[in-house]
């Protein structure tokens, strides 16, 4: 039963809420409670920070051997995206033609079904990227 495990991350999964260190100003996603640069000084000073959702593809792969959750979508595209705020996020690129994929392409986030707990289970929604 993964209901609560996904539910408690909804703010980040739906709206890209990360954290910003109140000491050095660095932005992190997913949220962190300690800044890896400022360590102790940052404790209690990590503020929620919403990413705009736009970025650029650093690298990607076209996945042919899919986990059971993504069987219906294969081959699908997974990428690491450098967000405009500097952090990097791993996620699917959807609504893209495979021959249009390239390192450096601009993408933005949208909300899609990411997985579910079976036909009778809860549906987990989250961010995916689409070409701008």
């Amino acid at each position: 039963m993964a209901v609560a495990r996904f539910w408690r991350e909804n703010a980040s999964r739906y709206n890209l809420i990360g954290t910003k260190c109140g000491v050095c100003g660095r932005v992190y996603f997913p949220p962190r409670s300690v800044c890896p640069t400022c360590h102790r000084k940052s404790i209690g000073k990590m503020e929620p920070f919403k990413l705009k959702g736009e970025g650029e593809v650093l690298t990607y792969s076209i996945v042919h051997e899919a986990p059971s959750q993504l069987e219906m979508q294969k081959p699908y595209v997974i990428a690491i995206v450098q967000m405009d705020e500097g952090v990097r996020i791993t996620g699917q690129i959807i609504d893209v033609e495979l021959d249009e994929l390239k390192v450096g392409m601009k993408v933005r986030t949208t909300l899609r079904k990411v997985s579910d707990d079976g036909a009778a289970g809860v549906i987990h929604y989250g961010y995916k990227f689409m070409p701008v």
């Binding site: 219906m72 979508q73 959807i94 609504d95 909300l111 899609r112 079904k113 990411v114 549906i123 995916k128």
Partner: peptide, 13 residues
């Protein structure tokens, strides 16, 4: 709709 789309994803967009 794509396999990862439904009324919720359409409504949110």
């Amino acid at each position: 709709p794509g396999p990862d789309e439904d009324v919720i994803t359409i409504a949110v967009e």
